[in-house]
Simulated assay, not measured.
Amino acid sequence: MGRVRVAGFAVSIDGYGAGPDQSLENPLGLRGPELHAWYFPTRTFQAMIGKDGGTEGVDDRFGRASMAGFGAFILGRNMFGPVRGDWPDDVWKGWWGDNPPYHAPTYILTHHPRPPIEMEGGTTFYFVTDGIESALSQARAAAGDLDVKIGGGVSTVRQYLLAGHIDELHLVISPVLLGQGEALFAGLDLPGLGYRVTESVSTELATHVVLTR
C-alpha cells in the first residue's frame, strides 16, 4: 500500500492556502495565483499547458514530483469547481478542460451525488457523499501500490491532517502576504499531530518544506 501525501501545496507567508471569494473568474480566490508564481515558469508547468521550455532546478524538481507516483487523487468540492449546492446540470466537468492533469481516478468530496465523469487521458471523477474515510478507502483501493494525493483545497487538507491520514506534506511557502483567505494552520498543532520538518529548500521564488509523520 502506498502513502497518503500532500504535494506542491502553496501557502502564503501568513498561512493562507487560497485567496478569498473563489469564483469562475478567480478559481484560486482573489490573488490566489500569486501563491503559485514559483510553479508557472517551470518546465513541468509549461509542458502541462503544451508549451516547450521553462525553468529547471529546485522549483521544477518539486513541481514534477508533486504530480508523480500517484495512483489516485482526492479533491474537495471547491477544487473541482465554483458550483455550490445541488448540481443544476451535468455541464460543469472541472476547471481543466477535456483532459485534466490527474490521469487517474479522482475522488471529489461533496454532499450532493452525481454520476462519475470519464474524461480524456485516464481521469475519472467520482463524487463521494459519505465522507473523507470513504473517499480515502476508495482511493487506496484504486491506487494499489501507488500513493494517494490529497490535492486540496485547504479544508480537505485540514480534515485529513486532523484525522491522522497524511504521511507526508510538501508545502511551498510563497513570499506573499494575502491578509485573508483560507487559513491552513489555524488551530492545528502539527507537532502534536506527529509532524516534523524533514526537508527545507529555498529558491528565489519559494521555500519548499516537507513535513513527515
Rank of each mutant, 00 (worst) to 15 (best):
M1F: 11
M1Y: 09
G2C: 12
G2Y: 13
V4H: 09
V6M: 02
G8A: 02
F9I: 05
A10W: 08
V11K: 01
S12D: 00
I13K: 14
D14N: 01
Y16P: 11
D21S: 12
L24C: 04
E25C: 02
L30I: 11
L30N: 10
R31G: 10
G32T: 05
G32L: 08
E34V: 09
L35S: 05
H36L: 15
W38G: 03
Y39L: 15
F40P: 00
T44C: 12
T44V: 08
F45L: 06
F45Y: 15
Q46R: 15
K51M: 13
K51Y: 09
D52Q: 14
T55E: 15
E56Y: 08
G57S: 06
V58A: 15
D59R: 07
D59P: 04
D60W: 02
R61M: 11
F62G: 02
G63Q: 02
G63A: 06
S66E: 01
A68S: 12
G69A: 12
G69V: 09
F70W: 03
G71Y: 06
G71E: 04
G71T: 04
R77S: 13
N78V: 11
N78E: 14
F80H: 15
G81T: 07
P82Q: 07
P82E: 05
V83R: 09
G85N: 07
P88Y: 07
P88M: 10
V91G: 08
V91C: 09
W92R: 10
W92I: 08
G94W: 12
D98F: 08
P100W: 06
H103R: 14
A104W: 01
P105Y: 05
P105M: 07
P105R: 04
P105Q: 08
Y107I: 04
I108N: 01
P113V: 06
R114S: 03
R114A: 04
E120L: 12
G122N: 06
T123H: 03
T123Y: 02
T124D: 05
F125W: 13
Y126E: 10
T129H: 15
I132Q: 11
E133I: 00
S134M: 10
S134C: 09
S137F: 11
Q138F: 08
Q138H: 11
A141E: 14
A142M: 02
G144A: 00
G144N: 00
D145N: 12
L146T: 04
D147G: 01
G152S: 08
G153C: 07
G153D: 10
V157D: 01
R158V: 07
Q159A: 13
Y160C: 06
A163I: 04
H165I: 04
D167A: 12
D167T: 05
L169A: 07
H170Y: 10
V172Q: 07
I173D: 02
I173S: 08
S174P: 03
V176T: 09
L177G: 06
L178Y: 10
Q180Y: 09
G181C: 11
A183W: 06
A183G: 10
L188I: 10
L188S: 05
L190G: 09
P191N: 08
P191Y: 13
L193W: 03
G194E: 01
G194F: 02
G194A: 02
R196P: 00
V197I: 14
S200P: 01
E204C: 05
L205F: 10
L205N: 13
V209Y: 05
V209I: 15
T212P: 02
